[in-house]
Design a protein around this nucleic acid. Structure first.
Lengths: 244, 244
DNA sequence: CCATCCTGTTACATTTTGTTACCAAATTTC
DNA sequence: GAAATTTGGTAACAAAATGTAACAGGATGG
C-alpha cells in the first residue's frame, strides 16, 4: 500500500513518547505522538494513521474508553499499553476490541514485533462488511456476535455456537498468532486446571473446527502445534477479491 | 516448550566465560560462550539461543552496538553486563533495548535470578511463530510451504511432510553449505540436548531423504559428513526445469 | 418428569516421533 | 591387507500426541 506505516503513540508520559518515538523512527516507522484523547483526535484528523499504541491510563478520558470509541468509528488497529496484572482478556478480548496489548514495563523490540504482526494482520484483512459496532468481532470474513453467540459468514450463512464453543473461539480471536497450550486454553475458558488425562480441549477444538473450518481435516484457522497446543490465525480472506 | 534454556555468554574475559559457563551449566542451562561479536554471530547461527548475556565492553564492535543490532534482527532477550556507574537507563531503556542488566562485579546467583526472570517474561508473551516472512521457501526447484507443511516440486508433485520433517528441512534450508552436527540439529529442531545414544536425527534425516532425494541411497541434497553431521546443499536442479 | 442441549470422559484409530537392533560402509589397528 | 572398531542407514517396534465418535451426567425449559 504505502511506504512506511504511520504510528500514533498516545501516552501522557513525555519520556515514553519521546523514547518510543525515537525507537520506532529508527526502525522505519513514521511516528506521531499525543498526550491525551484530545491530541489523539487531532492527530487522527491530520494524518492517515495506520496503528495506534494507546496507554490504558490517561488523564481525562482513559484509554479504555478511547479504545472502545475508536472501534466504533474506525478500523485502525490498536495496541494497548497496560500496567501489569490487568485483566488481559477483558482488554484484548471482545470487551474492548484492542488488537493486542503489551504490559509495562515492556521491551521495545517486543512492541515492535507486535506492531509488525498487527499491521500484517490488518493488511491481510480487507475491511469486509463494514465494521459494525457493539459486540461483534470480525475475522477472516466472519462476524462473531457475542450476544447471539453466533457466527455469520459474509454470504449470510449463520452458524450457531454453544457457549463453550463461543468462549473458546473468543480466546483464540483475542490471541491471534500465538500458540496457546491446552493448559492455557482450559484456564482461559473454564478457569480450571487440567487433569492428568484431560482431553476436553481437544474435543472442543474438534467441535469448533467442524463449525468454522471449510475442511475440518485441513484446518486453516485453528492449526494444531504438536506438543505445543493450538494456534489461531485469522488468515487472508477466503472469498474477497484479490487483495494482498 | 523446550527443555533447558540455551544461554550464550559473550565476554572477552576468558575467566568470566569459564566461570559463568560452569556455573550456569551446573544450574541446568545449556551454555555456549563467545569472546567477541564475530564468535557471537557464529554461535547464533549454529545454535538456537534463548538468551544472551552480553558484556558491554568488548574488543571490536562493543556490546552496545551489538545489542542494538541484535534487536533489529532477532527477538532473543539480552542481559547486559556493565561496569559500575554506566548510564543504566540508556542501557536497559528504549535506547538500547536490553531486557535487563547487571553490574560487575556481580553475584552469580543474582545473574541466575535475572536470567530466570527474563526468560519467564519472554516466554509469557511469546509472539507468533517465528518464521515471519513469506510462507514459502524455494530451493532446488522445490517450494516449501510452511502452512501446509508440504513440498511441491515444479512439475506438480506434492510431498506431504510431517511437522518434524518440515522443521528439520527448514533448518537445513536456512543453513545451506554448512555442516550441522547432530547436536545442533537436535537443538534447532527440538530444542533439546542429545542423549548418549540418540539416533533420532539420523532416523529423521533418513525419513526426509526418502521424501526429497531422487535416490535416497545416493543423497544429493543432504550429504552426510562422517563424524561431523549433515550438509545441505541446494545444488543445481535434478529433475525440475523451469522453476525458480 | 421428559426432551434437548452441552460438555467432559472414554475408547479407539491414526499419525508422528523416538528407540533399539542389526547390517553395511568407512576407518583404524596391527 | 585382514580383522576389529566406528559410524551411519533403516526397518521394526514402542511410545506419544491428536482427532473424533460415542456415551453419560448435568443443566435447561417445558
Amino acid at each position: 500500500m504505502n511506504a512506511s506505516p504511520h504510528i500514533l503513540v498516545v501516552d501522557d508520559d513525555l519520556e515514553i513518547r519521546n523514547l518510543l518515538g525515537k525507537f520506532l523512527d529508527r526502525h522505519g516507522h513514521r511516528v506521531t505522538t499525543a498526550a491525551d484523547g484530545v491530541e489523539m483526535r487531532r492527530a487522527l484528523e491530520d494524518w492517515s494513521i495506520d496503528l495506534i499504541v494507546l496507554d490504558l491510563m490517561l488523564p481525562g478520558e482513559d484509554g479504555l474508553s478511547l479504545c472502545r470509541r475508536l472501534r466504533s468509528e474506525s478500523d485502525i488497529p490498536v495496541i494497548m499499553l497496560t500496567a501489569m496484572g490487568e485483566d488481559i482478556d477483558r482488554i484484548v478480548g471482545l470487551e474492548m476490541g484492542a488488537d493486542d496489548y503489551i504490559a509495562k514495563p515492556f521491551n521495545p523490540r517486543e512492541l515492535l514485533a507486535r506492531i509488525k504482526s498487527v499491521l500484517r494482520r490488518a493488511r491481510a484483512m480487507p475491511d469486509a462488511p463494514a465494521p459494525e459496532d457493539g459486540d461483534i468481532t470480525h475475522f477472516a470474513g466472519w462476524r462473531l456476535d457475542r450476544d447471539k453467540r453466533e457466527l455469520q459468514s459474509a454470504d449470510g450463512v449463520m452458524v450457531p455456537l454453544s457457549g463453550g464453543e463461543y468462549d473458546l473461539l473468543a480466546v483464540f480471536v483475542s490471541h491471534p498468532g500465538r500458540v496457546l497450550s491446552r493448559d492455557q486454553l482450559l484456564d482461559m475458558t473454564r478457569g480450571r486446571e487440567a487433569q492428568p488425562f484431560d482431553r476436553s480441549i481437544d474435543v472442543q477444538v474438534s467441535r469448533l473446527r467442524r463449525k468454522i473450518e471449510d475442511d475440518p481435516k485441513e484446518p486453516v484457522l485453528i492449526k494444531t502445534v504438536r506438543s505445543g497446543g493450538y494456534l489461531f490465525t485469522p488468515g487472508v480472506e477466503t472469498k474477497a477479491k484479490g487483495d494482498k
